[in-house]
Simulated assay, not measured.
Amino acid sequence: MRVLFVGHGPAHIPWIIPLAWASRLAGHEVRVAVRPQCVAPVTRAGLVAVPVGDDAVTGAVAARQLGLGPGRLKSAGESAAVLDPDLSEALTEKMIAVADTLTDDLVDFARFWRPDIVVHDTAAAAGLVAAAAVEVPAVGHTWGVSLGVHCERESELRPSYARLFERFGLDPVIGPSVWIDPCPPGLRPPHGVRRADMRYVPFAGPAAVPSWLRRDRDSERPLVCVTGGVTTAALDEVRDHVVASLRGLGADVVLAVTAAQAENLPQLPDGVRAVESFPLDVLLAHCDALVHHGGVGSGLIAVTHGLPQLLLPQNAFQEHWSDLVRSSGAGAALPADAAEGAVGAAVQDLLARPSYRQRARALRGEIDAMPLPDQLVGFLEECVRAGHTEVPTPKEAGRR
């Protein structure tokens, strides 16, 4: 079986790596089609990348501003943690516009390589066009949140979506859709698309374990990780006061930063160290709590280790995830510009109150109960045999 994975931006690539590798280990041929800027993360994972599109052209569309500042969620009385309708509409149109810059190359490759199935990031609508071009099933793959391009019925068909297909002489793909979803149910808001659950397996790249992580710590002080993620500078402006507040609690701090962020770090005080481009899933195994920008990947990695987390969101997407984590009881959230004293008090509460860790561990239990990626490979195989995606998911079939 030939499986064509279609990725989106750099922050989305880690989500598709586990299933891509599970497919390879099952003996299938795998290609991962991505924008040129995402080739390196794919090849570092040992997979074969197919560059599609022109980064300058696609980047100009992807950089389109949508007003993602905080405060763009619906009120709690409507539906908690849902983006407002205007922003959701603008986001969908932006994802379609990005897809329009990629479809020529992607359809050409699909017609050349002839995949048996296409697994596409739910934000990568170009994957739906490629699947239609070679008449194979298309399966979505979420990036931890319930956002993406889909069309479940004729009444939802938008002109821009239809045009993606029409210029290739194709009929637009209209539901029912199915999305592979590694987000545990306790952090997943309701959504109209059918889900195929898959256990979340963190992937954050290779590393060599440093000596200080290969021995027991010589301090009883809690160790708190602070990160703004690997694709943003989200916490750069508030990092120093966050660190100061944690040191005021008597905690040791480890900063997880990118190479670019490492160049701009000040002299670090005692009790604070930095790790550069280091896998967060390895680091958090040694920590007691996480303070971060509200990234979905960072948050779910904390959950896999049963860690409480403090989120400091700076835009609507980060607010969306922060609200889900806060509502689950596995963490707390504050505005990114919260006063130093508020950050310190929130982390102290995270460390002192057992319920945060208990709830985080309960969510980890939900993850552990979800089907492993190899079970989803079986689901893909069944979709290929049937010629469509309306086959039982591993959960529906009672398999793990």
Rank of each mutant, 00 (worst) to 15 (best):
F112C: 13
F109D: 14
I96C: 00
T92K: 13
G127N: 07
G127K: 12
D84K: 02
A90C: 08
V129N: 00
D84P: 04
W113D: 00
A125T: 08
D104E: 07
A123N: 13
D105R: 00
D121K: 04
A97L: 00
D116N: 14
A124I: 13
F112Y: 15
F109E: 15
A99C: 00
A124V: 08
I117F: 05
L87F: 07
L83R: 05
K94E: 11
G127C: 01
G127A: 00
A97W: 13
D105P: 01
F112E: 15
V118P: 07
V129G: 01
R114Q: 15
E93Y: 13
V98D: 05
A125F: 06
D108E: 13
V107P: 03
A124P: 09
A131M: 11
D100Q: 08
A97R: 10
V119E: 06
S88R: 14
L128Y: 15
A124F: 03
E93K: 14
T103L: 01
T101A: 05
A90T: 04
E89K: 10
A123C: 12
V129A: 06
A125I: 00
K94C: 08
V134R: 11
V107Y: 01
L128V: 05
A124C: 01
A133D: 10
P115C: 05
R114I: 06
L128A: 10
F112S: 15
P115H: 03
D104H: 00
K94P: 01
P85S: 05
V119Q: 05
A125R: 03
D100C: 09
A90N: 12
A133H: 01
V82M: 14
A97F: 06
V82R: 15
P115E: 02
L83E: 02
A99R: 03
F109K: 11
E89S: 13
P115Q: 02
D108P: 06
D105I: 01
L128G: 14
P85C: 05
L83S: 07
H120K: 07
A99L: 01
A133M: 06
E93Q: 04
T103P: 02
A124Y: 08
L106N: 05
D105H: 07
L91F: 15
